[in-house]
Every structure is written in structure tokens, then in C-alpha cells.
Design a protein around this nucleic acid. Structure first.
Lengths: 144, 144
DNA sequence: TTAGTTGCAACTTTCATTGTTACGACTGTG
DNA sequence: CACAGTCGTAACAATGAAAGTTGCAACTAA
């Protein structure tokens, strides 16, 4: 599966902003976050832009600009983040329509679709059980 | 998420072979399955090759060659298929190592890793609940 | 006014999957 | 034994998504 790292990077960014704010800073810049995540600031801005549309963060422009949390980390779950940054479904159907004249080709897509929907629902429940507060706590608890 | 269709196509192929055998045929060819799935026979042979390594199907060479099930559909779950055809993890880490000098950069990977492992375990349980017999039954029950 | 940062478009790079072609290996049938 | 049909597999092209990069206009605190 060609997994992408969007969820991971988004969680990283949120935890970073949250910690930075707890240290007394107002806003964090995409440059700082990109340095921590070892990637390009534009990648971070794109991701945070999606999180802003989902109401998880806010941005300020101009000098002394940057990003801040729109809600407490404890009220944000990985499901919120997942829905903000992951567009498509977990499993894909055939890239081309299967032979509709064949019994299997005809019935396979609705069948798999319904199975996949159930599985994705379970996945959502799992993601909803973890808050970003949990993530930050675990991050800080990592042994040095 | 760039979902791929390997699990879907593999389930399609297994259901097709299973149904074909119930109609009294010994083996199914990659050509026939490819026609039903509307793809290339080599794609099917590659996938079935992975399923053979996992002990789900058998192949016969020479004239009158083709593929047959190694086990009953009722004893095969989507988890068996998933493990046979999906190599990587569901979610990826950063593509480059995050800044190990940063507290978040240092702790984020172990943290997310452990969360993802729990989620994948749940996913496996869900996949294990569905047999290929279930899939074929649903496929045949699709309204015309 | 200036410096620092976001917002965003456009493009390139990278990578996995899928699709395609080609051909040797194998084996049942006549 | 020759032949036809199919698998097994390598090599390569095509496709598409994500990530990385560059450039610059817009904005705003100082």
C-alpha cells in the first residue's frame, strides 16, 4: 500500500505548535515546524492550510505572523486530523469497470464497497480514540 | 490516501475461480480472469503468484493449464489475502528523519508507530471476519 | 517604510502501481 | 514427438499521487 505520511506530519505539526505555545510563545512559523519535521515549509503550510479549513488551527499574516491552535489539543482527535488531510478511501476499486456481463464482474464492486465501508467505520472509531493531547504526552514521555 | 486496488482484484480473482470451479471446471486461466476484471493477464498472474506463495491457490502449467483454489473459500479470509498482497504498513512515517535534536522530532516516530500498530491490529481483526465465501455469496446476491 | 511571514500557483522530482511486450519453460493432446 | 496453450518472469512504459521546490504577491507589526 502506498501509504502517505500526511497524517504523521500533521500530527507532528500540531504537537509542535501545542508544545511551543505551552512554552509561552504566541505563534509558530512554518519554517520552525519544517525544520523539526525535516521537510519544506511550503509542505507544512499546505498541510496546516487544510487543518485551518477544518477549524483545528488559525494563522496570522504579516510580520510576527505564524500558526496557533484553534482548539485545545485535548479536544482534537486523530480522526479530525485524518478527515482534514486524507481525501480518498482506504481501499480502491478496480481502475477500470469490470465486465458487467460477468456475474462476478457485476457484483464485486458493491460487495467490496460495503465491506470496505464497514472497515473504514471501524478505523474512524480507532482514530477518534486518540487525542492530540495523548500524542504530545507520549512524545514527551519518550526516553532520552 | 493513494489506495491501491490489489486487495479488490485479488478478491475478484478468488471469487471468480471459486465460482468457475463450482460450475464443474478444473482450472481457470489468467486470461479469463483478466477479462472479467478488465485488466491485463500479467497483472492477474502476478497477483495470483503472490496468493500461491501464501498457499491460497495452485497453478498448473503446460497445455490445459490454469489456476485452482488450494483451500475452500470458506476457510480463506480477507486478512489472508491482505497479508499476501499488501506489503507495507497502512500509514507511513516521515520520508526523511525528523530533527532528533527537537523533542517532538525525537519522540514523534515511536509515538505514531505504536498508535498505528494498534490501528492495524484492529484492521486485521476486521479483515479476518470476512471469508471469501462471504464475498462470493454477496456477489451472487447482487440484484440484476 | 521595512522586514518577516503567509497564501498560493506552477513546476519538478520521486515513487509505487499498473499496464504492456516478449519470450522461455512446461505439459496435455493428437 | 511436434504442437498448441498457458504459466513464470523480466524488462520497460505509462499513469498518478505525494512531496519537494521556486517565486512572488499580499499582508501587517514595529
Amino acid at each position: 500500500m502506498s501509504a502517505n505520511s500526511r497524517l504523521t506530519i500533521a500530527a507532528h505539526a500540531l504537537a509542535w505548535i501545542g508544545l511551543y505555545q505551552r512554552q509561552g510563545h504566541e505563534v509558530a512559523t512554518s519554517e520552525q515546524i519544517a525544520t523539526s519535521a525535516n521537510t519544506n515549509p511550503v509542505v507544512i503550510r499546505r498541510l496546516l492550510g487544510e487543518l485551518r479549513r477544518a477549524g483545528l488551527v488559525e494563522s496570522r499574516r504579516g510580520a510576527g505572523a505564524g500558526w496557533s491552535l484553534a482548539r485545545e489539543l485535548g479536544t482534537m482527535t486523530l480522526l479530525d486530523v485524518y478527515e482534514a488531510v486524507e481525501p480518498g478511501p482506504l481501499f480502491a476499486m478496480h481502475r477500470t469497470t469490470p465486465d458487467q456481463g460477468c456475474v462476478v464482474g457485476y457484483g464485486i464492486q458493491p460487495t467490496m464497497q460495503s465491506i470496505y465501508e464497514g472497515i473504514e467505520e471501524t478505523l474512524r472509531h480507532e482514530l477518534a480514540r486518540v487525542t492530540l493531547e495523548d500524542v504530545l504526552r507520549d512524545v514527551l514521555a519518550a526516553p532520552r
